[in-house]
Design a protein around this nucleic acid. Structure first.
Lengths: 179, 179
DNA sequence: TTTTCCATGTAACTCGTTACATGATTTC
DNA sequence: GAAATCATGTAACGAGTTACATGGAAAA
């Protein structure tokens, strides 16, 4: 119901057509949702089928036909319900690429470090990019703060892991020189 | 390729049948993957079709037939490739329930706080549960550390958000008493 | 003897993506 | 006249889940 909540929330601020919604999401919320454009159109149909929004064909001047959606009373109810549900529970984020860490011992230490450093670089870059993004207004800034917090924590943790790995002695092999 | 990497990595430590794999995952890795049992069986078929594992029917005593899978050389190659790919890149985790925050202003402050406190409680509980889990060995502990780090960061951030929201004055309405 | 554990699957379904299709209008 | 923007969709596909189906053995 994440995506539904998003669409309902946006429509709450005024009637919009699909293209507008997609545009807004792409410009402002790309970092926190991966909703695709096609999906949004399909979703709007479903919201309509549920009676949460109504649609009205419109055409401004000679521009292509638009389908403008507005929230219904039932839609506002649904929004309120979904929002409360969403805010009141905690769902841990799914890490995209964690399990690799479980098998890091399968690589020579040198290479493991090289890879982790590359990972850290990618992370750091993402963070920098994010930090230089312009401030948003109101609660949207909360989302950005959250993401920033997440990225910073990840970076710090990863740095620690690398440091720990670097300082650990290479396991001695039989026959290696020993002081 | 996350799931494939996981299965290959486990099979690398020795031949296993599906039930064993599922069991291990459920007991030890439930927090970092949501691989379902049925999916695992299907996946093993696919790994076999790709030549990454071989299967051998076995039966111990009168127990039900088992299909024991072992890694092939091609499977080891695939594992090495997938592991490097996985470790070398950073993929931000997908937050399960973030967008609600963008619309938190839609609720009266009181209720918003009540919900966020509930969210924090759920988070704190998850963290406690996790902290009391037994230590794992080797790199698996890395996964647990990662999750712990994540949960702690989330908890701290959420607490800050709540604190900020609490200390902010309620917006005055027209006609409210003013000092 | 009933429940739990061992052990494996299939079929239908859901959700979402990708690629494709369409067509007008404004800008270069 | 070409390209970008505006505007909406559909059909095929893919990944994964759910619910269901099966059946023997061990434990309670």
């Amino acid at each position: 119901m994440e995506r539904e909540l998003l669409l309902l929330g946006l429509l709450r601020q005024g009637a919009m057509h699909g293209y507008q919604l997609n545009d807004f999401i792409e410009r402002n919320l790309a970092f926190c949702t991966d909703l695709k454009k096609s999906t949004a159109y399909v979703l709007l149909d479903k919201l309509q089928a549920r009676g949460w929004v109504t649609m009205q064909e419109a055409r401004a001047g000679n521009r292509p036909h638009k389908r403008v959606y507005s929230l219904t009373a039932a839609g506002e109810d649904a929004f309120q319900r979904l929002l409360r549900e969403n805010l009141g529970e905690f769902v841990a984020a799914k890490t995209g690429s964690d399990i690799g860490l479980a098998f890091i011992d399968a690589l020579p230490k040198r290479e493991a470090l090289r890879l982790l450093n590359r990972r850290r670089a990618a992370l750091a870059e993402q963070l920098t990019e994010f930090e230089s993004a312009p401030q948003h207004q109101g609660s949207y800034q909360l989302l950005i703060d959250h993401q920033l917090n997440y990225l910073r924590c990840e970076l710090e943790w990863l740095s620690q892991v690398i440091a720990r790995m670097q300082s650990r002695r290479v396991p001695l092999r039989r026959g290696s020189a020993r002081a």
